[in-house]
Amino acid sequence: MFEYFYKYGSPRHFYDLSKMFVPWLGGICLILLIAGLTGGLFFAPPDYQQGESFRIIYVHVPSAWMSLFIYVVMASAGAISLVWKVKVADALARASAPLGASFTFLALATGSLWGKPMWGTWWVWDARLTSELILLFLYLGYMALQTAIDDRRTAARAGAILSLVGVVNIPIIHYSVEWWHTLHQGPTITKLDAPSIHPSMLVPLLIMAFAFMFYYAAVVLLRARYEILENERNSAWVYELTEQRKG
């Protein structure tokens, strides 16, 4: 099994696979985005309390979910690269960080744009918002480590350890609204009983969540491909690629 893993996990093979998959993943993402946006902006009815302002949910909630999901992917890839020295895992972790930081930033910024009219404030230091801000700093710290350390293998190892230390923040973000009194409301969809959102509003939200998933899959492959080129810049197969590009 491991032989298979190492063969398909080889940088060269991964590069070719990425070239093949990115257009497909990107295409699916675009279709889902169009469907989700039409559903969310045109077909979903306004909320009984928040009126039209609740439509921010369609970018805010998927961004927040992705910010947590990408962190878990990044830390797992870091652990794999630390223990099994899989080069592709390195590249995936490195490529995930800017995307995770982007989604965390979007979750915070769109949440702020929602909070101003509804709560009456752009920002509060409650447990949910504060732990999400810490997540942003974890991503930025990881990225800073990658640029600060010149040797890419050392940087990958240091980054993996940092991301593993930060994993503890993920359950804190998720459960903060249940463990402590927060201004942020409790979970709507991930709670155990039926989701407390009307289906006409839920369906576009789930479509948007899938769109963001496919976006991440496409862009992380695109970015990982570049990271692999950087890692392998002195190997023969990268050198050969220039021939194809010129022709």
Partner: peptide, 19 residues
């Protein structure tokens, strides 16, 4: 947007710029 245009549209525009 029911009077919430200055909050809803920046949220969407910002998201798509970053994406």
């Amino acid at each position: 947007m029911g009077g919430y245009a200055i909050y809803v549209w920046p949220a969407y525009v910002l998201t798509f710029i970053v994406l």
